[in-house]
Design a binder for these strands. Structure first.
Length: 511
RNA sequence: GGCCCAUUCGUCUAUCGGUUAGGACGCAAGAUUUUCAUUCUUGAAAGAGCAGUUCGACUCUGCUAUGGGCUGCCA
């Protein structure tokens, strides 16, 4: 196949995009870029009932944050505009009618209430109601009603839908790029609604096939939940006579809950203590909020890296991938078939890996806004240096302040455990003497300070741990932080002396 | 219930008939260390079950079991 690769990500704006959706978008994007093709964003808002304001904007912002670029579609435009299905509504009726005329579909006049009753009735009899070849001629449809009656009902404004006339007892043979060959007998399928007069909009199935055809989509890469409707989609391509340009299909394994059963759902996040959304979300209507990876302190690159490896692997032992490396390595053949349990711990590990190898400049860019929130105004170099010294201890960017605040703010409280251990015996007296040693140092670089201090410690018979930890108590106030000479150099001589004085003046030694 | 998909360490996965079944997360132990981390080393940990094909099966086939998805005028 030498057709131009054109893929689409086609979410429904019924709420924030969750990480399963992000992964689908990512795989589409990687595939498009890998093959020099185009990535389309189409908004499938054919359900007027479930439309959520703000969801579309959220989706676009999420993809942008993730570095998934859209070549064509909502927000970008392109040769097949519009890309929002609600704005394409005039297109679909024609195709629905075409199918009816060709005998592939029919009008049905059942009301939702009648259908509910039929389902309930079947359920009570221990069966499942299926709208199919067995019942369609007994129900009020254009198959049972006669042309005049059908016309009359439509003319008088009765509500109707167009249903696909699923053939009886035919084996549909399908091929999936991930799952291989699949066959299904049409007798097990039902007559899906393709178009509804109530809101003059198609359903997913019709809109999807029509738009994929019109937009010249070459590969449909979507979640496994769509596999059961693949036979219908195959048959629709056949009914329209579009089989020669029918796209290839790839159904992705689902993302499953970390514990328990079922696929990952939008509600799992707060329940299980990790975000299921890329970005923070606030529902405009209910005011409900949900955490996002971005706000929780994850880097987009790490988040994407983690998602890419959830259901796909490069076949090598490489784990850290930039987007470009993912593009170069990606192939649908290496996507796994079974659902993947989402693992929050692994997401953290990836994030830590990225943080550990970041340059001071990159760290400064992240840290500056956080510092400003705490009222700290420093140069990028200083911000980057502080974060750089502590980066190997970071898991999330939200750790930055807790890990480095002592560089900017003198301790006002002293950790009890460290105080009890260090602020006793000879140590207060030792610290007083040590203060004068520090005061006498001219070159306060960490290298020089270390040489001078270590010599003093040895000459006076102290232990390194004793002196360093007492100093740590004075400068940091807690048993954490980098090597003490990093601290002394960073805060400078005057601040060191000030903090030592403060400890001596304000804290009475233990015992 | 029906249809479809899947099944290797707790989890994500490698293996495309012949391997001591490899890696990663997490976990445990040890080393390093002025604190807390990091890092390093080591360890425990897997082919759902039963048949069959084959000289040989984690790999192919069938059945069973288990998990998942779909079964809407939602996508």
């Amino acid at each position: 196949m030498s057709r131009e690769v054109r893929v689409r990500f086609a979410p429904s704006p019924t709420g924030p995009l969750h990480i399963g959706g992000v992964r689908t978008a990512l795989y589409n994007y990687l595939f498009a870029r890998r093959h020099g093709g185009k990535m389309i964003l189409r908004i499938e808002d054919t359900d007027s009932q479930r439309f959520v304001p703000g969801a579309e904007e959220y989706i676009i912002e999420s993809l942008k944050w993730c570095g998934i670029e859209i070549d064509e579609g909502v927000g970008v435009g392109g040769p097949h505009a519009p890309y929002r299905q609600s704005e394409r509504r005039d297109i679909y009726l024609k195709y629905a009618k075409q199918l009816v005329e060709a005998g592939w579909a029919y009008y049905a006049f059942d009301t939702p209430e009648e259908l509910d009753a039929l389902r309930k009735e079947a359920e009570e009899a221990g069966k499942t109601f299926a709208y199919n070849y067995e019942v369609r001629e007994k129900l009020p449809t254009s198959l049972s009603l006669g042309a005049d009656e059908v016309e009359a009902r439509i003319a008088r404004g009765d509500q109707w839908v167009v249903r696909f006339k699923m053939p009886e007892n035919e084996v549909v043979k399908m091929d999936d790029l991930i799952r291989g060959h699949v066959e299904v007998n049409t007798s097990t399928l039902d007559d899906k609604v393709l178009y509804k007069s109530a809101d003059a909009l198609p359903t997913y199935h019709l809109a999807n096939i029509v738009d994929d055809h019109l937009m010249e989509v070459s590969h449909v890469i979507r979640g496994e939940e769509w596999l059961p409707s693949l036979p219908l989609h195959y048959l629709l391509y056949r009914a329209f006579g579009w089989t020669d340009t029918q796209p290839e299909f790839a159904h992705l394994p689902l993302l499953l809950k970390p514990t328990g059963g079922g696929k990952l759902s939008k509600r799992d996040g707060d329940k299980m203590g990790f975000p299921v959304f890329p970005l923070f979300w606030k529902s405009p209507s209910t005011g409900e909020t949900a955490r996002g990876y971005r706000e929780d302190g994850y880097l987009a690159e790490a988040f994407i890296n983690m998602l890419a490896l959830l259901g796909w692997n490069p076949g090598t032992e490489q784990e850290i991938f930039s987007m470009q490396e993912l593009i170069n390595a990606f192939s649908l053949e290496r996507v796994s078939k079974a659902g993947a349990r989402f693992q929050p711990d692994k997401a953290k590990w990836f994030n830590a890996q990225y943080l550990h190898t970041m340059s001071d400049e990159a760290l400064a860019a992240i840290y500056q806004p956080i510092l400003k929130e705490h009222g700290i105004e420093v140069s990028d170099a200083v911000a980057g240096k502080a974060a750089g010294i502590m980066k190997e201890r970071m898991t999330l960017t939200t750790d930055m302040w807790d890990l480095t605040s002592f560089f900017f703010v003198a301790p006002t409280e002293y950790e009890e455990k460290l105080t009890k251990k260090q602020w006793k015996g000879d140590n207060p007296a030792m610290l007083a003497k040590f203060r004068e040693v520090l005061a006498a140092i001219d070159d306060f670089s960490k290298e020089n300070t270390e040489v001078v201090v270590k010599a003093w410690i040895e000459a006076n018979g102290y232990s390194l741990g004793q002196v360093m930890n007492t100093l740590r108590l004075a400068l940091v106030g807690a048993g954490k932080g980098p090597g003490m000479f990093d601290v002394t150099e960073f805060i400078g001589k005057q601040e060191c002396l000030k903090r030592i004085d403060s400890l001596i003046a304000n804290v009475t030694p233990v015992e």
